[in-house]
Structure formats: C-alpha cells, structure tokens
C-alpha cells in the first residue's frame, strides 16, 4: 500500500529526473571517457570504459608544441583581471546611476541600454583596425597582445556590468546612505565606506559571472592573438579539433576536462549566490 502510494506520487518524478540527468550527463560522460582512453579519437567502441590510460593527459601536458599551462594561465589572468577591474569600474557607475541625482540620468541610462544592443561581433572590424593603429606606436597594448585584448574586453564588459550592478545596487536599502549623508558624509565617503562593504557579496557574484563570460569568449581572442604562447585555452583547444588533417579529440577532451573543472567547482560551490544574480537578469555566456 505504501509502495503503491509512493509509486503513484513519487515514481514518475524520479523517472523524469533520471531521464533529464541522463541527458545532462551524456556529453560530460563522453568527455571523461574520451580523455582517459588510449586513443585520440572520439570513436566509441563501447560506452563502458575499456581501459584506463593517461596517454591523452601526457600528450597534452608534455608536448612542447602545446603550451597548455600557458594557455590556462593566460585565460585565468585575462579573465581575472577583466572581471575584477570591470566590476570595480562598473560598480562606481552603477552607484552613481542608482544613488546620485544629476541631469540627463534617464537619457544616459537609455543610451547605455541602446548601445548594449548593438551586436558586438559586428563592430569587430572597427575594433580590429583601431587596435592595429595602436600597435603601431604602443606595441605592448595593440593588436596581438594580451594587454590589448584585455582593454577591448574591459570596454565590452562595461555596459553589461553597469546594467547588471545597477539592479543589485537598487536592492541595497538606501536608508543607510541617507543616514550617513545626514551625518555629513560626502558621496565619495558613502561609496567607499558604506556602499562597497555592503555590496561586496554582490560584486563577487558579478565578478564570477564576468570571469566565466570572459573565459568563454572565443571570437575576439582568436582574431586578436595569433602567437600560440599568447592564446587562451578556448582558442588553443579549438586548434586540436579544427585541424584540417588530424583531429585530436583525446587531448582536447583531457584539456577541456582540466580547464572546466575549476569553473564547475567554483560554480557549484557558489550556486546559491549565482542563482540570485541570474534572477536579476544575468545571462551567462
């Protein structure tokens, strides 16, 4: 009787959950399976593991023409720098939009929103030619350098971050600011001493989303960085499977497993906070 009741009320839930979990896990299982295989192909003789081998990891990590660690550190450095700096700069603007009164506030917010809607990929050629000109006199921040790419990312992240952060800032109670203002604090003091400490958990979440977004960026990075020692992990790993003559799915799977693991762990451990961010309108890239 109890079993029947369970069967009627709960079993279908478990059935659906199992089916969806299978769908969710299938590609991930394939990555794991492929990366621990002996061969480099994605071919599946059997969906069950037939052996355990670190060949693919070895060929990824020890091959001198594949600077995996460099790619990884490039990606992490770029994404970390861009996310921290853009959130820092974006927070200042978001604070001003949310808390200060000034003329043209509504118009500038609408302008920001409008610019945001231009398909960024299509302004690529203009960005490219600007950075090409910068390269002519400042080779360290022009085209083909990580510095240049970081600047372009910062510019691109600005709109999204300001918009997103403004939503968060609005949800922080204004009474605290007002109390401080009554006590004679300037806007700068309110920003540094009251707003930033209060907003820091929120800023951390936006930072993380921005980090993942930058980590996922492919097209700008592939156009900007040609030298293998400067490439990001996304561009580098794509090279494994886009080769005209050989596709090395084994090392690719091993590489994407290593590269994704930290992000997945970070995401899962902070999911509670991230979900709050998502409901405020963030779209992860």
């Amino acid at each position: 009787m109890i079993f029947l009741k369970w069967f009627l009320t709960k079993s279908w839930r478990h059935a659906i959950a199992w089916a969806v979990c299978f769908f969710a896990l299938f590609p991930l299982y394939m990555i794991v399976l492929t990366s621990f295989k002996k061969t480099t192909s994605l071919q599946v003789g059997s969906f069950l593991p037939t052996g355990f081998s670190l060949t693919n990891f070895n060929s990824l990590l020890t091959n001198p023409t594949v600077p995996f660690y460099t790619w990884m550190s490039n990606s992490v450095i770029i994404a970390a720098f861009v996310s921290v700096v853009s959130v820092f700069i974006g927070a200042a603007s978001a604070f001003a939009f949310s808390r200060l009164r000034f003329r043209g506030k509504k118009a500038s917010i609408q302008l920001l929103l409008l610019i945001q809607m231009f398909p960024a990929v299509l302004a690529l050629s203009a960005v490219y030619s600007i950075m090409d000109r910068v390269h002519a006199f400042a080779p360290s921040i022009g085209l083909g350098t990580i510095g240049g790419l970081v600047l372009v990312y910062l510019g691109g992240a600005m709109g999204v971050n300001i918009w997103l952060l403004k939503g968060f800032v609005d949800s922080i109670p204004i009474e605290l600011d007002e109390a401080a203002r009554v006590d004679g604090a300037s806007p700068m003091q309110i920003y540094w001493r009251i707003f930033l400490p209060l907003a820091s958990p929120v800023l951390a979440v936006v930072c993380l989303l921005s980090f993942i977004g930058t980590f996922n960026e492919y097209i700008l990075a592939s156009l900007f960085l040609n030298d293998p020692s400067q490439q990001t992990i996304a561009v580098g790993l794509h090279g494994f499977i886009s080769g005209q003559f050989a596709t090395n799915w084994g090392p690719f799977a091993a590489g994407s497993l290593l590269a994704s693991l930290p992000i997945v762990v970070l995401f899962l451990s902070l999911q509670k906070y991230i979900v709050n961010g998502l409901t405020a309108g963030a779209v992860k890239g």
Binding site: V20, A24, L25, P27, L28, L237, I241, S260, F267
Partner: peptide, 21 residues
C-alpha cells in the same frame, strides 16, 4: 547538482564536444 552541471560547464567546451558527438 547533476542537472545544473551543463550550465556550470564553460559553454565553449560543451559546444565543441557536442560538435564531435
């Protein structure tokens, strides 16, 4: 936890592995 894994995975890697699959 399992269901949000596809979302936690960097999408660029997922797209490429799907291409192979």
């Amino acid at each position: 936890s399992i269901i949000i894994l596809p979302y936690a995975m960097p999408s660029i890697m997922s797209i490429m592995i799907w291409g192979g699959m």
